[in-house]
């Protein structure tokens, strides 16, 4: 099949997955690289590459995802394009991974440009709609979203149909150190996502557990399922021992209130 035909298929998968998840599930799950990359691989005829790239892309984008509406890179578009680049050009997975973050950043810039233009002016319209014609509010929302969501899909179609093969030809002409640098960058870039995650969760009191997880892999070579189970056991134990302290504190407080004593809220942590 021609590149244009394949690009159409990928754009269709992207459209359906984003419509389904962002519109009707809100899981932020099907749009993750680990799901969309295998699907992209499937329609491009190389399921295996899609599955393996899904794992690598998920690692790259793990910490880089939307919280409260702002993000640094569009993981979904980047995954589609990176997989298409790798399969259509028959390059190694590393090249596709190395290109995914810059592509995701550019694509995200595009989204941040058009989304406020389309959705923000609508806010006032929706308010009037909700109050004056509540019966059609639901169906209007669905239709509007179904149309607005087309925009990214069209961009994705154009990018794959007319961009990825040319991009490969261009990169081939560059001196070899550039691709070597991009490859080195890709394994360091995974660290960016993890650094964002770490800084969100980090708390000096519990920071040491990061190294416990690290050591379980680096020295004990355990897999992630085993570590998740060990971690869950530790977290549950910690929760119940803290809970006992809090219960005791609340009982004391309640007793204090009964006795008519004024007790100030203590900060427990």
């Amino acid at each position: 099949m021609s590149t244009v035909g394949l690009a159409f298929k990928v754009a269709l998968v992207y459209y359906l997955v984003t419509l389904c998840d962002n519109g009707f599930l809100s899981w932020q799950c099907l749009t993750r690289p680990i799901v969309i990359a295998p699907l992209t691989g499937l329609v491009l005829g190389d399921f295996h590459t899609g599955i393996v790239m899904g794992a690598e892309l998920e690692a790259v984008f793990m910490g880089i995802s939307a919280i409260g509406g702002s993000q640094a890179a569009d993981a979904t578009l980047a995954s589609c394009i990176a997989v298409a680049y790798t399969i259509l050009n028959n390059t190694g997975i590393e090249d596709g991974i190395a290109l995914s973050l810059p592509i995701g950043t550019v694509m995200n810039g595009f989204g941040q440009f058009w989304q406020p233009l389309v959705y923000s002016p609508m806010a006032a319209v929706w308010e009037k709609e909700a109050v004056n014609s509540p019966n059609t509010f639901f169906i209007k929302n669905v239709c509007f979203y179904a149309i607005a969501n087309l925009l990214n899909s069209v961009v994705l179609f154009v990018a794959i149909a007319f961009g990825v093969v040319g991009l490969n030809a261009f990169l081939d002409k560059l001196p070899p150190f550039i691709m070597r640098g991009l490859g080195a960058a890709s394994s360091m870039m995974i660290g960016v996502g993890f650094a964002i995650l770490t800084s969100m969760v980090w708390d000096n009191e519990i920071g040491i557990w990061f190294f416990v997880g690290y050591v379980l892999v680096a020295y004990a070579h355990l897999n992630t399922v085993a570590i998740a189970l060990i971690g869950a056991a530790i977290a549950i134990t910690l929760f119940f021992s803290h809970k006992r302290v809090i219960d005791a504190k609340n009982e004391l407080l309640a007793a204090g209130v009964k006795a008519g004593a004024e007790t100030g809220e203590e900060d427990f942590f």
Partner: peptide, 13 residues
């Protein structure tokens, strides 16, 4: 957070 940090540490490794 404890569980999350352990997983991040493991995946960093």
């Amino acid at each position: 957070g404890v569980l999350g940090l352990m997983m991040v540490g493991a995946m960093t490794a």
